[in-house]
């Protein structure tokens, strides 16, 4: 269908929404009855909408460029270099955690294997303890080391002796309070003091260092144990050293 100029103008007015209500009514009536005209209107309507979309897309792209040029966004996505650095960092962290965990596990394992609380060779245990001293020994023999440590500590105030001092440290260590046991053992193992429990103090101090991860101190103390003439646990210390160097 060839449209004349007036019909083209009519369709343009329709597309640009410039019709009066009366014009619109007449236009719609013709669209409803004249199929050829309706087909033409459809064609121009589609053309108009598609041109509008094309124009809109072009302008949108232009405004996006204006936005990017004036308000550039920093890429939140890491570059390949950043990814590599992140991966390397994670690998180092994983290795460190594995190493620390394994190391701690080995030290703990050796400690458990070699640590045994020193036997009470001092006090005969009575069925019903009458004094604090008896109570402390009873706790110790019953494996109630925290209670025993507390009792031995109280005894120091009134009756400080080598036994209570050593077994307080021993009870603390057996109760898991190794850090507090260390200074007590250090005093007892000193060469200048010739403490009654110097030999066992050195052994247990070495184990205390092992348990707390102070490996240099452990090494020094283990040498001291081995250098102590006729040390009762020199062989065990050698075995422990061999086991440790094997790992």
């Amino acid at each position: 269908m060839d449209l004349n100029d007036a019909e083209i103008l009519l369709i343009k007015n329709f597309l640009h929404k410039r019709m009066t209500p009366a014009e619109e009514q007449a236009f719609n009536a013709r669209v409803d009855t004249d199929t050829e005209f309706r087909s033409e209107v459809d064609f121009y309507t589609n053309m108009f909408a598609t041109l509008r979309d094309q124009e809109r897309d072009r302008l949108k792209k232009m405004l996006e460029e204006v936005e990017q040029a004036n308000f550039p966004k920093q890429s939140k996505r890491p570059t390949w270099g950043k990814w590599l650095a992140i991966l390397l960092g994670l690998a180092v962290l994983a290795w460190f955690l594995f190493w620390r965990n394994t190391k701690a596990t080995n030290e703990e394992r050796f400690f458990v294997e070699y640590f045994k609380p020193y036997e009470n060779t001092v006090q005969v245990i009575t069925r019903s303890p009458q004094t604090n001293v008896e109570q402390a020994w009873q706790y110790y023999d019953q494996g109630k080391y925290a209670l025993a440590a507390a009792q031995f500590s109280q005894m120091k105030a009134t009756d400080k002796n080598a036994d209570s001092e050593f077994f307080e440290a021993m009870a603390l260590m057996a109760a898991g309070n190794t850090e507090r046991a260390i200074p007590l053992f250090e005093r007892m193992e000193s060469d200048s003091l010739s403490h009654k429990y110097q030999q066992p103090a050195r052994w247990y101090l070495a184990l205390a260092f092992l348990r707390t991860g102070k490996l240099n101190d452990f090494k020094k103390m283990s040498e001291k144990v081995k250098a102590t003439p006729n040390h009762f646990n020199a062989d065990k210390m050698n075995a422990l050293n061999e086991q440790m160097t094997g790992h």
Partner: peptide, 28 residues
């Protein structure tokens, strides 16, 4: 589908024709 067809057809027209149609029908 019609939109795609129309866009393809417009792209095949020469530059002058594209301008004339856009100016007349779209830009009024």
């Amino acid at each position: 589908e019609w939109k795609i067809t129309f866009k393809k057809a417009m792209a095949l027209l020469n530059e002058n024709c594209r301008r004339i149609l856009e100016w007349f029908y779209y830009h009024d």
